[in-house]
């Protein structure tokens, strides 16, 4: 009581894990292409989330009197052969592209990573069975396999997701297996086993987190492929069905008018290019910051100017 109340020091909780991820993010955003990719993706996500508020008209508001209008004040991206606003359809198509891309890649990610983990960790017959299965899927050209799956399931957005998901599963299985093979032999896995950790624990706590960087990169690159695949399937009429807007479908519909009204095909085409480019650039950027060797080179490059300045001051 007599002692003066000392203000209790606030407990300092250092969270290096979060700090490390934050440092990675900062490094990622310090590279202009990655920053561009992240901004584009954020913009596309916002557009897809608020598509109905952003789009000037509904996706299927036909106004034949206003058909084939070139881009201008009334219709920024022009109108198509039925007088529908191209901008609105591009905006509304973003949701389809992103949805199909993320759901399909989510499917490949879960199934492929699980297969790769088990195959890489246990080896032997599990490895042989799972990876030969993946080889069979891998043997077909991607788009052909997707078309074959659609032929069985029937066309439609949901089936396009399943088809694309199946098509890209082997990629994840292989990437994961390769990473697991490296991590599996690390001493800390054996050390953890030597204190009695179970297989499930070894896989989820020790192997998977250390095998994550290539999987993250593959996810970004696969998203780009999935968006392209959805556009391709819709282009040939096997993906999203009319009148729902889809970039691939719009490309194919606008193809017939390319001499007369270039804007019908060019704007959805540009949208595909920009989204795919963004995913690819992000994948590149992630690979640079997640690969330890690349990363130290990047960090060194970032710190060099500062060091030089300090050296000059000393002189």
């Amino acid at each position: 009581m007599s002692a003066p109340a000392r203000p209790a020091a606030p407990p300092v909780r250092v969270r290096p894990e979060r700090g490390r991820w934050r440092a990675t993010l900062r490094l990622l955003l310090s590279s202009p292409p990655s920053l561009f990719a992240v901004l584009v993706l954020l913009a596309v996500v916002v557009v897809a989330l608020f598509d109905e508020q952003i789009a000037p008209t509904g996706f299927n508001e036909v106004d034949v009197s206003d058909r084939l209008q070139p881009p201008g004040a009334g219709h920024w991206f022009g109108t198509d052969d039925l007088g529908r606003d191209v901008l609105s359809r591009v905006v509304l198509g973003a949701k389809v592209s992103l949805q199909v891309g993320t759901v399909a890649v989510g499917f490949s990610l879960v199934v492929g990573v699980l297969a790769g983990l088990l195959a890489g960790f246990y080896g032997r017959w599990i490895d042989a069975v799972l990876m030969r299965l993946m080889d069979v899927l891998f043997a077909f050209p991607a788009i052909l396999l997707a078309i074959a799956v659609i032929a069985v399931l029937g066309p439609g957005t949901t089936n396009a997701m399943i088809a694309i998901g199946i098509t890209y599963t082997p990629v994840f299985a292989r990437v994961t297996r390769a990473a697991v093979l490296g991590v599996r032999e690390q001493v800390f896995v054996r050390a953890s086993r030597s204190v009695g950790a179970s297989d499930a624990r070894l896989l989820l706590r020790h192997v998977l987190p250390n095998a994550l960087p290539p999987i993250i990169v593959q996810t970004s690159v696969s998203l780009a492929f999935a968006v392209l695949a959805e556009a391709a399937l819709s282009f040939v009429g096997l993906g999203t069905q009319p009148p729902a807007p889809s970039w691939g479908r719009m490309l194919s519909e606008g193809r017939g008018y390319i001499d007369l009204a270039w804007w019908i095909a060019v704007f959805p085409g540009l949208a595909i290019v920009v989204l795919v480019l963004a995913f690819n650039l992000l994948g590149d950027g992630l690979r640079d910051v997640l690969d330890p060797q690349q990363r130290s080179a990047l960090e060194a490059a970032r710190h060099r100017p500062g060091r030089r300045r300090r050296a000059e001051v000393r002189r």
């Binding site: 001493v187 054996r190 050390a191 706590r205």
Partner: peptide, 13 residues
Amino acid sequence: FQDPMTSLNPVLS
């Protein structure tokens, strides 16, 4: 184990 650099998991505290 021999090498404390490798016998600890780098991603866990």
